[in-house]
Simulated scan of single mutants.
Amino acid sequence: MEAFPALSIQSGRQVMPHKRLDILAGKGFVILNLAGEEIHPAEWASVAYHDWKSGGDTNFAVLASAVGDEDPHGFWEHGKPDKDGVWTPAVKQSPSLRRWVEDAGTRFGRVRIIKLQPSPSYDEVISTYLHLDDNNRLNRDGEGWVVRAWLNLTDDPDSFMIVREDRDDPATESRIPLPKGAQFVVDTERLWHAVYHPGPRPRYAVITSFESGPQLQRWIERNQS
């Protein structure tokens, strides 16, 4: 079920809070079943990657952007919230990944494949790469809160995503395992997060911005045991 907070007042006007999902209210993340569809490695190995750093030594292939080009910059630079993404030509090489995004049935924003090189150490990930995302800039009052979903493409059994409520408090830390096909949703504007990936090869995963709402709730429920 969705949560609908009460109205608030800002600068003399009523503000309708963003719609959020109850399932994310507790921990701020939810782990889903492993993806059932086998995805050929060519779908992520044959696309062009751009040098763009976020949460480690990373490169990104842009499958959907604000205006349909392979620009990894934020949607707000085009005057848009992180919604209503436009597929880029690169997605033609990744039809299964496009189906995965569209299967959620909700508005999506940026869609990227991340290529993450092995991490130097867990301690360096904590000290250097933990971050919050900026998902909801320009998000209109009363619309669905933007969260992020992942599909892990490579099998990385020794790797995990670190999520923390408090950046500096390890007691608030949870770890999301990253086997092949791992699927999970995180409120990344609430939770500090980064991936510890010991390697030895690069890790690949799809990252998508999704709008919270009934469609996303149903997709999560379909993908839970």
Rank of each mutant, 00 (worst) to 15 (best):
Y49F: 12
R112F: 03
L151S: 11
V206Q: 03
L32W: 04
E70G: 03
D123M: 01
E189A: 10
S46E: 13
Y122G: 01
T106N: 07
V125H: 02
A45H: 13
A194R: 01
G68A: 08
R175F: 05
F4R: 14
M16C: 13
P17W: 05
S212H: 02
S8H: 04
P198L: 00
A194I: 00
A48Q: 15
D169R: 06
I162T: 06
G142M: 15
G55I: 01
L34H: 14
V206N: 00
D69S: 12
D156F: 05
G68Q: 07
W150Y: 07
G109D: 11
I126L: 03
P214K: 09
H131S: 12
N223T: 10
K19M: 15
W145E: 15
F160Q: 10
S121W: 00
E2F: 13
D69N: 15
R99H: 15
D51M: 11
P177T: 08
T58P: 00
T172R: 04
E221S: 09
D82Q: 08
L151C: 10
W219S: 04
M16D: 08
Y49H: 04
R218F: 01
K53H: 10
V15C: 11
Y196A: 00
H50Y: 05
E102N: 07
D156S: 13
A61Y: 03
G213W: 14
E38V: 15
R107S: 09
Q93R: 14
S119K: 00
F29E: 01
D156L: 11
S174H: 15
V163R: 02
P157D: 08
R13D: 06
S96G: 14
G28S: 10
V62P: 00
P72S: 11
V147A: 13
V163I: 13
P5G: 08
P179W: 04
P5D: 15
K80N: 15
I176T: 12
I176H: 03
V163G: 02
A64G: 08
E77W: 13
I176D: 04
I162L: 10
H131Y: 14
Q117Y: 05
R140L: 14
H40G: 11
A194F: 01
F210Q: 06
S119L: 00
Q14K: 10
V86G: 04
W145R: 09
